[in-house]
């Protein structure tokens, strides 16, 4: 599709530019500014060069938080993408069931993130929560406040609960766009259920799966509120993700320089991974040969 060249179109984009400049560029410049300066008190800044970046990149605290984030995102993608596909395949295609499924599935997505945290904080408690109580009743020693593994289990379960529907809804949108003739042809060709999935449904879901992987990666990598409410980053530092650490550093300890340097590194890591996913998936889609 050839669009005509028209530089006046810039005027149409101008409002967005101004708004984004105000809500993104200026704050980002502040961050960059802080990241290369040091301060000993009120409004006295001096040049620090790359010192903060070196400190951050060599700090074990940062490495650990980054590792936690990467492991968390990997687990999240490994569970939510296949589960989302399975749920999408299981959804009814017509009738009242579609509306019911869509509405119920979208429900967790519309709950404020700290309420999501609260729900699971309560749900997982051994004394008053259904999950914690049940696990204890069947003899599993479960306590997400004390045990790091239990804390991770709770947070991952919570995220699966919270976001799998997004993947499923995206895949469902891809599935319903497949013309009926494809399924008919597959039946005539004697294709097995697996072959239908592998050669018809999966290829047609490619685009939406790309969106799903990107969104789920970005959002799981930026996760803050839900684990903060459930565990507060604990026990110990076991669920302290980059965002939690960053807010602790910037707002709690007011270490502006390191926090700013960390912000930039953090942002760049998200960009880098998103770019890798995007490139790999689009290459894969083109045939990868």
């Amino acid at each position: 599709m050839d669009r005509p060249t028209n530089q006046k179109a810039w005027f149409l984009v101008l409002p967005v530019l101004l708004l984004v400049a105000f809500s993104a560029v200026i704050p980002l410049m502040t961050v960059v500014n802080y990241s290369v300066q040091d301060t000993f008190g009120n409004n006295e800044f001096f040049w620090a060069g790359t010192a903060w970046f070196e400190e951050i990149l060599h700090s074990q605290r940062f490495h650990e938080a980054l590792a936690r984030n990467l492991i968390f995102s990997a687990i999240i993608l490994a569970i939510q993408i296949p589960l989302g596909i399975v749920v999408a395949l299981s959804m009814p295609r017509k009738g009242i069931g579609v509306s019911i499924c869509l509405v119920l599935m979208a429900l967790p997505l519309l709950i404020p993130w700290n309420v999501v945290g609260t729900i699971w904080q309560v749900f997982g408690r051994v004394d008053i929560g259904l999950l914690g109580h049940t696990l204890e009743a069947i003899g599993i020693d479960y306590n997400y406040v004390r045990d790091p593994l239990d804390a991770w289990f709770t947070i991952i379960l919570m995220d699966v609960w919270h976001w799998t529907s997004l993947v499923a809804l995206l895949c469902y949108a891809g599935l319903v766009s497949i013309p009926e003739a494809y399924y008919q042809a597959a039946r005539i060709d004697g294709a097995s259920r697996w072959a239908v999935f592998r050669y018809i449904q999966l290829p047609k879901m490619n685009r939406v799966l790309l969106i799903a992987v990107l969104l789920r990666f970005m959002d799981s990598f930026m996760i803050y509120t839900e684990p903060f409410v459930v565990t507060g980053g604990g026990p110990g530092n076991s669920t302290t993700f980059l965002s939690i650490d960053l807010v602790k550093m910037a707002v709690g300890q007011f270490d502006l320089g390191p926090a700013a340097a960390m912000s930039i590194v953090y942002f760049l890591v998200v960009l880098l991974f998103s770019w890798i996913f995007y490139t790999v998936m689009t290459n894969f889609e083109r045939g990868g040969q």
Binding site: P179, A181, Y182, Q184, A185, R187, I188, G190, Y199, I200, P203, K204
Partner: peptide, 17 residues
Amino acid sequence: TEARNIAQVFQFPVIYD
């Protein structure tokens, strides 16, 4: 269909991409 041993060609090309 799959037990009937027939082949069918549709109006729009159905291929496995």
